[in-house]
Every structure is written in C-alpha cells, then in structure tokens.
Amino acid sequence: MVHVPMLSADPEAFYSELRAQLEALVGDERDAIANLANAAALIWHTAPELNWAGFYLRRRENELVLGPFQGKPACVRISVGKGVCGTAVARGASVLVEDVHAFPGHIACDGASRSELVVPIRHAGRVIGVLDLDSPRIGRFTEADRMGFEGLVRILEQTGLDSVW
C-alpha cells in the first residue's frame, strides 16, 4: 500500500516525500505507461489545487499525443511549439505560467485552467514528452513546485522509458 504524503508547509519536505512515494510506486517496474499512469495518479491525489495532471508523449517529431492522466478529457494532439506543452518541448525546458490567459497561443483544453506547469521528459538525449499540470487558480505554481516536479520527472526518466521509444 502506498502512503500518500500530506501537504507540508515546507515544499522541500513535501517533494522529498513525494519522490520517495514515486520511487516506491515505480520500484522495479520497467513499463513506461504503467509508471506514467501511477505517477499521474499520485500527483493528482497529492498535490493541491489541480484540475489536470498527466503526460503528453512525443509520438512523432513535431507532435505530442495524450498519455496517462487524471482529470477531465483533454486535447489529444499538440504540435511542438504550440501552447505551453509544445513550447516546453521546443525550449527543452520547464515552462511555468502564472496566468494561461496571458500566454500567447495557450491551448484551452479545460476552460477552468488558469495556471500551468509543464516539465519536459528526456530519454536518450531528446525530449520525448512532458508532465503537464493545470490549476484553476492563477499563480498556483511556484519555483519550488517547478524544482519539485522536475525531481519527480528525473525518477521517471530512470525507469523503462525505452519500452515506449
């Protein structure tokens, strides 16, 4: 049974516990889809004020396709360079957006989303997907969140991502 950490006032402690929980969930499992599905569920049930948590996977050079997620149905395909997810892939870096309505080219899969954090996932030296987090609250995500979720993605990058690519 996986213990879901309680939100701590200390982001470093919260993300440390969250990393430990993800490592326990992943364990020796090498299937990328299973690990991404469990990661999405863990994040969804642990991080407050989210209305979407999941992954988009780079299935073609210039396109992301919806992967495992928690939340309302979502956009299925996103072009690299478009929206927050596509921008994170094009830049090869995390993108933290305080207010998505002020982000040029934002793709509104859920009209309730107001802020977003997208973290690229790498395998064999290239961006192969993203962790996408949406919140209905403007300014929900902080630099501590960015660093914390980047740490979670590093754990996933060390698992069986080659089972998909």
Rank of each mutant, 00 (worst) to 15 (best):
Y56W: 03
A32F: 06
E29G: 01
G71P: 01
R126N: 06
E23W: 01
R77G: 00
A32D: 05
R126I: 03
N51P: 12
A74R: 06
V100N: 09
F103S: 09
R114M: 12
V84L: 10
Q70H: 09
R59F: 01
N62H: 12
D99I: 00
P11Y: 08
V127H: 10
A112D: 15
G129S: 08
A53T: 14
S16H: 14
E49G: 04
K72P: 04
F141I: 07
S94I: 07
I121F: 11
E63T: 12
S135Q: 07
G125C: 02
S8R: 13
A32S: 12
R114C: 05
L50I: 11
W165L: 14
P73Y: 02
L117N: 04
A32I: 01
V65C: 02
D10G: 01
F103P: 11
A74P: 06
I43C: 12
V84A: 09
L117S: 07
L96F: 00
E63A: 07
P68C: 07
C75T: 15
P73W: 00
R60H: 10
D31Y: 08
E23Q: 15
D110R: 07
E116V: 00
G92A: 05
P73K: 06
D145P: 05
E116H: 04
R91W: 06
V95S: 03
S115A: 13
A108V: 13
A102V: 02
A144F: 10
V130E: 05
E150P: 05
F55Y: 14
P5A: 07
R58H: 04
L7N: 10
R59P: 00
A112N: 15
P5H: 11
C75Q: 10
V153C: 07
G27C: 04
A47E: 13
D28A: 13
R122M: 02
L161Q: 04
H45C: 01
E49W: 04
P136R: 05
P120K: 08
R77C: 01
R140M: 11
V76G: 02
E29P: 00
A37H: 14
E49D: 15
I155F: 11
P68W: 11
F103D: 07
F103R: 11
T46W: 13
V100I: 15
T142C: 03
P48E: 11
S135N: 10
G139D: 09
Q70W: 07
N62A: 09
I33D: 08
S163K: 03
N51K: 08
R126Y: 02
N38V: 04
T87N: 05
L36A: 09
P104M: 00
L25M: 14
G139H: 05
S113E: 06
I155L: 14
S79V: 00
